[in-house]
């Protein structure tokens, strides 16, 4: 992996930092990279810093801001957010699911549930939910982040419940009564009972909920 890469997305230019390097190393690499890409970035561009699984503290963030400012650039925001001492927990970070294979490792608050969720039982969590067990028909899991069910998902799952369309729903056996991601709602076609034989993952692609086999061959 390159120490520093530039990527463009909807929000602007993302500076992807290799999380294996030390902070000092990163600073020198960033400086060199920006110098070489001078014309490409233009002046006064506000970039987004994505440091993967590394969370910068306040001091490091200040240093980076100084470094970027000295080269005529600004920092719009940090992903994940800068760790402010004594501050409240940050909003959950969900990396680009499709691009980043480490997305399961790099997140904020996660709730682990080790039991079967039965009819009438609900779980709501402001982050990712992992269920080691089944979610039976009539049960409901609502998460602001991802929902991962290591078992049968037969009930209702709502991932990205506050509108995060990057959230995914994974299940060893994905056969939900209803599946919701952000504002999208889907259900199995009437009359057809498909029993999946292997783990599947549901996510939003091009404005639609798409279900794919999790293990790509």
């Amino acid at each position: 992996m390159e120490p520093v890469t530039f990527k463009g997305n909807r929000e602007g230019v993302v500076v992807q930092l290799n999380s294996n390097l030390s902070f000092e190393e990163l600073c020198t690499k960033v400086e060199a990279k920006i110098k070489s890409a001078d014309s490409f970035l233009g002046n006064n561009t506000e970039v987004i810093i994505n440091s993967g699984s590394v969370v910068f503290d306040d001091g490091q963030a200040q240093k980076l801001r100084g470094l970027f400012n000295s080269m005529g650039l600004g920092i719009k925001k940090f992903i994940p957010e800068v760790n402010q001492q004594g501050g409240e927990a940050n909003d959950m970070f969900i990396p680009e699911v499709i691009e980043d294979d480490n997305y399961l490792l790099a997140q904020g608050s996660t709730l682990m549930v080790r039991k079967n969720l039965r009819s009438g039982q609900t779980i709501f969590h402001e982050g990712t939910v992992i269920i080691l067990g089944d979610v039976n028909p009539g049960a409901e899991v609502i998460a602001l982040g991802h929902i991962l069910v290591l078992g049968n998902l037969r009930g209702i799952a709502h991932a990205g419940a506050r509108g995060d369309t990057r959230a995914v729903v994974f299940a060893s056996r994905l056969q939900p009564t209803q599946l919701r991601i952000a504002d999208f709602i889907t259900r199995a076609p009437d009359g057809e009972i498909l029993v999946p034989s292997e783990p599947e993952i549901a996510r939003i692609k091009n404005g639609m909920v798409v279900i794919e086999k999790y293990l790509q061959k």
């Binding site: 969720l117 039965r118 009819s119 009438g120 039982q121 039976n136 028909p137 009539g138």
Partner: peptide, 12 residues
């Protein structure tokens, strides 16, 4: 079966 499942949960 659905109701039985609910009952198991409530008993727990």
């Amino acid at each position: 079966v659905r109701d039985a499942d609910r009952i198991v949960g409530l008993l727990e």
